[in-house]
Computed example of a mutant assay.
Amino acid sequence: SFSASAAYHWPVGDSLKGIARAGVVHDARRETALTAGTPGDAVTSANARIGLESPNGWSGYLYGENLTDDDGALNARTTYGLGNRQRPRTLGIVLRYDY
């Protein structure tokens, strides 16, 4: 397995904080002695998030998960060829308020 990530924070105006984060994870093919099927696949996934945070408790972000849209088997497949997989590429908005 290999993973790397980076984060950057910067001031926006008088009180807001901008945040950007990105990360990537790579896992090599995995084989498990508990299954009689074939090994899993090498899987690479990238995630990113950018947003604003307020000292008043609210924040908002745009995010993307599994940006590579990798759909390989995460672990060894069963004899039927079934294996766990990541969720497909997902894009979204997160709005949050802490009180």
Rank of each mutant, 00 (worst) to 15 (best):
R85W: 01
R96D: 06
A20W: 12
N56D: 15
I50D: 14
D98G: 07
G13K: 10
L74V: 02
V24R: 02
A28P: 06
L52K: 05
G72R: 00
W10A: 13
R29Y: 00
P11A: 10
A73D: 07
G72S: 01
A48R: 01
G92N: 06
L16N: 05
R87W: 01
L91R: 08
Y80N: 04
Y63P: 04
G83V: 02
G92I: 03
T79Q: 15
G51A: 07
S59Q: 13
A42E: 06
P39I: 03
N66M: 02
T78Q: 00
D14V: 09
P39M: 02
K17D: 14
T32V: 11
I50C: 12
A42C: 07
G37F: 01
N47H: 13
Y61V: 04
V24N: 00
L74Y: 04
A22C: 12
S45A: 12
V24P: 01
T68P: 01
V12W: 05
D27G: 12
S15C: 14
R96Q: 15
S5F: 12
L34D: 04
V12L: 13
T79V: 09
R49D: 10
E31Q: 15
G72I: 00
P88A: 10
R96C: 03
D14Q: 15
D69W: 10
T35E: 06
S3M: 05
P39A: 09
I19H: 14
D98W: 08
G18L: 01
R29H: 13
D69E: 11
L16A: 05
A6L: 13
A48T: 11
Y80G: 07
A33F: 08
G92C: 11
R29K: 11
L95N: 05
R29G: 00
A46M: 12
L62R: 10
E53S: 12
T44V: 02
D41M: 07
T68Y: 08
L16E: 05
T35G: 09
L82F: 09
G40W: 00
L67D: 12
I19G: 04
S45N: 06
L74Q: 03
A6Y: 15
L16Y: 05
V43E: 01
Q86G: 10
D71R: 06
D70M: 03
R49W: 09
R96A: 13
R89F: 04
P88Q: 00
S5N: 09
R30K: 09
V25Q: 01
W58H: 05
Y99I: 10
L67R: 13
A33V: 05
V12T: 15
T68I: 03
I50E: 11
E65C: 13
G18F: 00
